[in-house]
């Protein structure tokens, strides 16, 4: 299986001005991650969605059954890149459909670039590769409406189908991506974005913090270290006593069991009142009042 990254192409097409240095850095980062090919400039062979969209649509509409290779556009023998197929998962025999595409790939190298308008590109791309498809075209964070590269990579890694040694480099890739994408309206990767979001390893609820202390893998699909991230325990309305003690440990604040119980009440009430979790200063303030002055109910309830 081969993964092709077209992030640079998609960003340039969207109007981002990317320096040579950044482009070189991107290529190096993604090669380090284990990506097979990183494409840069549009206009190279088979990199025109307009030219390929026709055959892709034809293949889709006819359910790949009767499209002879010679009907497809482009130079004979050159790899054919199919864009779109966003709704292939909705076909009754969608895996059969992918199998027919693989058959098509025997007579002419085929590269799949699933569209993500229905949020199924990762599922389709992963299945394509796991079932024996040769090449998948992706982009970082799914820019350009393609399968998000990081999701496909992590799904392959966790399934054991292919290991990627450079996963801890993902935060660097995210930072560079955000810099290169600054011209886009949505340049920043959402904090809850799968695999690369900065908030995906934050926990608040008592049940999850308790699980974290017993065995982090209880509520984590993969360890944060694997993707260069860190766990965070945030105090808030759903905290439990063990989370409060952990927060005190993080800040180096003393707290015995009875104080933790009072502090928990104060944290929950203030968080519910503010309708959000608490920041470090707010937590220190409550700790000061509750643990040093023995005062909490008035803060929490007035």
């Amino acid at each position: 299986m081969r993964l092709v990254d077209v992030t640079l192409v998609c960003l340039r097409r969207a109007g981002c001005d990317i320096s040579r240095k950044d482009a070189a850095c991107w290529r190096a980062l993604l090669r380090g991650l284990g990506i097979d090919r990183v494409e840069d400039r549009a206009g190279r062979a088979n990199l025109c969605p307009g030219a390929d969209a026709g055959p892709a649509r034809a293949v889709f509409l006819e359910r790949a059954a009767d499209v002879a290779p010679e009907k497809l556009e482009g130079p004979r023998g050159a790899p054919l890149r199919l864009f779109g197929l966003d709704d292939a998962l909705l076909l009754e025999e969608w895996r059969g459909f992918l199998a027919r595409l693989r058959e098509l790939g025997k007579s002419r190298p085929l590269e799949l670039a699933f569209g993500n308008s229905l949020g199924c590109a990762t599922a389709l791309g992963l299945t394509w590769l796991l079932d024996g498809g040769e090449t998948l075209v992706c982009s970082f964070a799914g820019v350009g409406n393609l399968a998000p590269l990081e999701e496909v990579v992590m799904a392959l890694h966790t399934s054991g189908a292919r290991r990627f040694a450079g996963l801890p480099g993902l935060p660097s890739a995210r930072a560079l991506f955000e810099r290169m994408a600054h011209a886009l309206a949505r340049a920043l990767v959402p904090p809850a974005k799968a695999v690369i979001g900065q908030a995906i390893f934050a926990v608040e609820s008592g049940i999850h913090v308790d699980g974290l202390r017993k065995d982090p893998a209880l509520y984590e699909p993969f360890a944060p270290e694997l993707v260069g991230a860190r766990r965070r325990v945030v105090p808030g309305a759903h905290s439990g006593a063990s989370a409060i003690r952990l927060c005190c440990e993080i800040l180096g604040l003393p707290c015995d069991a009875s104080q933790a119980s009072d502090l928990l009440l104060a944290v929950r009430n203030l968080s519910r009142k503010l309708e959000r979790s608490l920041g470090e200063d707010e937590f220190r303030f409550l700790h000061e009042r509750v643990c040093r002055e023995g005062w909490y109910a008035a803060v929490a309830c007035d």
Binding site: A202, R230, V234, I250, L251, R276, S277, L278, G279, E280
Partner: peptide
């Protein structure tokens, strides 16, 4: 909406 900036100080 939520403010993820509040998460920044709580690394374990």
């Amino acid at each position: 909406r939520r403010d993820e900036n509040l998460f920044s100080g709580w690394s374990v």
